[in-house]
Computed example of a mutant assay.
Amino acid sequence: MRKLQLSIFFAVVVSGLTSCMNESADPTSKYYDANDVEIQAYKDQNGGTVTTTGLYYKITTPNTAGKQATVGEELEFRYKATNLKGQFVDSSAATAPVYYPLGIQSVFPGLEQGLSLLREGETATLLIPSYLAYNDQAKTNLPAYSVVRFDVTLNRSRSEEQQIDEYIANNKLTVTEKTASGLRFIRTVTNANGTTPGIGQTLTIKYLGKQLRNASAFDSTGTGTFDALLGQSKYVKGFEEGLSKMKIGEKATIIFPSTLGYGTSGVIQSNRYVITPYAPLRFDLELVSAK
């Protein structure tokens, strides 16, 4: 059985689901071999499939017509984790699912791989060996180097366009303009007598930026202002495009896909994603003055 040596992933989206694999871990250790034996015995008794990486999965509620989980899309799912005796280890909140951009490697690799095998509406049982899960980290009812069982239901896999459109509808926003690039411009305060700044001017602005799923901002001017030089490609494309549509004295909300933001890389600070890859962003802007 081929096993993976994987470094610690950035823990940002789903607390409690991150891998504790260490690069120096010996994948031929007796613990890992014992995991494989346990998983194979379960497969022999219950059917299912063991992948080349060592992950076991069995679709318990199929939906062959459902959309396949897609890298870069936001997955909405629920899970319950137990040990092989059925004792509770962890679960998603009873009143809320988990949201996770598939492919950003912020949860341990066994869960990431298991999610990628599902279609919308499907439920699966995953048996994840320790080398693809918690490794040497003990959890409640789960000793170190143990196989963990996940029962997972994939509710939805949403593209960035779907996320943006649903966000706008849910927040009852009225889009002033949707540009060819995918930016949604929502003018919230109009100043018909204001002038439109030109390229090369310095704009004094106030702003607040956040991901659509997050209540808190990843950045803002707070009670102060920020001087932005327009048209010099100093900022992400969506931010510059939004500013270019404003007149002095106006306020606007702009929403744009990751292709106009931080793309497939996101923003990392102190080994954590401040902005995840594939993240559509919202900025609330005020153009105070220009010179």
Rank of each mutant, 00 (worst) to 15 (best):
V37K: 11
Y57I: 03
R282C: 10
E161H: 11
E74L: 13
D33L: 12
L102S: 06
L142Y: 05
S157R: 00
P101F: 14
N83D: 07
E73C: 04
L127S: 12
G231K: 08
E160A: 03
S244W: 10
A144N: 04
T52C: 09
L17A: 11
S91W: 07
S265C: 12
Q269H: 10
N170D: 08
V274P: 01
D151C: 15
Q5W: 09
K206F: 13
V13T: 01
G72H: 13
A41N: 15
F150H: 06
S220Y: 02
R282Q: 09
G261A: 02
S146G: 12
T259V: 03
Y79F: 11
L6N: 05
T195F: 10
Q211M: 09
G224H: 02
K234G: 09
Q201A: 02
D136L: 11
T276W: 04
V148D: 07
S92Q: 05
G66W: 03
L285A: 10
T95D: 03
N83Q: 05
Y32E: 00
L212E: 07
S24Q: 05
T174R: 08
S29Q: 01
R187S: 14
S220H: 00
Q68T: 05
P27R: 05
A217T: 09
E122K: 01
D136R: 04
V12M: 11
G66R: 03
S29Y: 06
K67P: 00
L4N: 02
Y56I: 04
V147A: 09
A169G: 09
E166R: 15
P129A: 03
G198P: 07
V14E: 03
N83S: 05
S157Y: 01
N191G: 11
E112W: 06
D44R: 06
S258W: 04
N191F: 07
A93C: 07
G194I: 01
G198Y: 12
A138E: 05
R272L: 11
L17C: 05
Y79C: 06
R272H: 11
N46W: 08
E38S: 04
G209W: 11
Y207R: 03
V148T: 00
